[in-house]
């Protein structure tokens, strides 16, 4: 099966309606649903319906991402959420990087989310791979330079495992699985979204699980810790990884990450079953 067909499969929604529990996944900045593929299949195997869509401007040509704003990403996610939520008893949202910020954003604006799973939450661009030139951002963002400034994809691809890194590099070359650079306009969108999410963080009341690596190359643990510290949720869990970079779903601890997510999800299913027995 080629990579493109797999992406289509995710676009077409893996459904199993009678279970009435679902997870809406969001991919990362300049990424595509491809990066959530293994995670999506894992959740599907555990009995969840999984939905994952490509954000506006993503997965296609660089021209398209330059013309979208962070509000487009938020509106798109909210639309998808509204469309899917009514069909399920239990509805979780989960995302990686930008997707995690969007998942938290949805948590701020919807009280009926069963739970949030935020992976490598990017609320601050302060990872060890962020170049010092990021301090030029204010000048670049306010002049025409913003259209000529880009951050090329780091050679480590956000993955510590060298074998995975090599295979990711090959995949990036042959398929529409993501872009090989981060246009400044797009990074600015993420920063504006992050600012908005930080401002309204207290509105999150649903259970939340944050998984973040201590050695995340793009965003330090500051963002995830900020979320855990400031949300109003009664159930909140923070898990720190120590053998991965940013792409926690592909790195050395991917199995641990997926099992932790499964444990978190199972807590709700068990609670629901116990409530049913009572």
């Amino acid at each position: 099966m080629s990579d493109n067909i797999d992406i289509e499969l995710l676009h077409n929604e893996i459904t199993n309606i009678q279970d009435k529990k679902a997870v809406l996944l969001f991919h990362g900045l300049t990424g595509s649903p491809f990066e959530m593929k293994k995670y999506a299949h894992f959740l599907f195997d555990k009995g969840y319906d999984v939905f994952c869509y490509s954000f506006p401007g993503h997965g296609n040509r660089i021209d398209e991402i330059e013309t979208v704003t962070w509000q487009d990403w938020c509106n798109f996610s909210q639309e998808k959420y509204n469309l899917l939520r009514k069909s399920y008893n239990q509805f979780f949202v989960s995302g990686l990087c930008l997707g995690a910020a969007i998942a938290v954003y949805l948590g701020e604006h919807n009280n009926d989310i069963t739970g949030i799973i935020a992976l490598s939450t990017t609320l601050f661009l302060d990872g060890f791979c962020i170049p010092w030139t990021v301090s030029f951002l204010p000048v670049a963002l306010n002049t025409i330079v913003k259209f000529y400034y880009t951050f090329p994809e780091d050679e480590c691809y956000g993955v510590k495992n060298e074998r995975t890194r090599k295979s990711l590099a090959k995949v990036m070359l042959k398929a529409d699985v993501g872009m090989d650079n981060y246009p400044l306009n797009c990074v600015a969108g993420l920063l504006k979204l992050s600012k908005n999410v930080r401002k309204n963080i207290k509105k999150v009341t649903c259970p939340i699980l944050c998984i973040h690596s201590k050695y995340d190359n793009l965003a330090s643990t500051k963002g995830a810790k900020f979320v855990i510290k400031n949300v109003s949720s009664k159930i909140k869990k923070y898990v720190e990884l120590d053998n991965s970079y940013h792409m926690v779903l592909y790195d050395n601890e991917k199995i641990f990450v997926m099992n932790t997510v499964n444990e978190f999800l199972n807590e709700f299913v068990q609670q629901k079953e116990l409530a049913g027995i009572a």
Partner: peptide, 24 residues
């Protein structure tokens, strides 16, 4: 390059950075 619409990201990154530094 803006007329061509095709640009190597690494070159674009260096050009953008240089442009930004010059602008400052």
């Amino acid at each position: 390059y803006s007329l061509k619409k095709v640009i190597n990201p690494k070159f674009k990154a260096k050009l953008g950075l240089f442009l930004c530094g010059l602008m400052i």
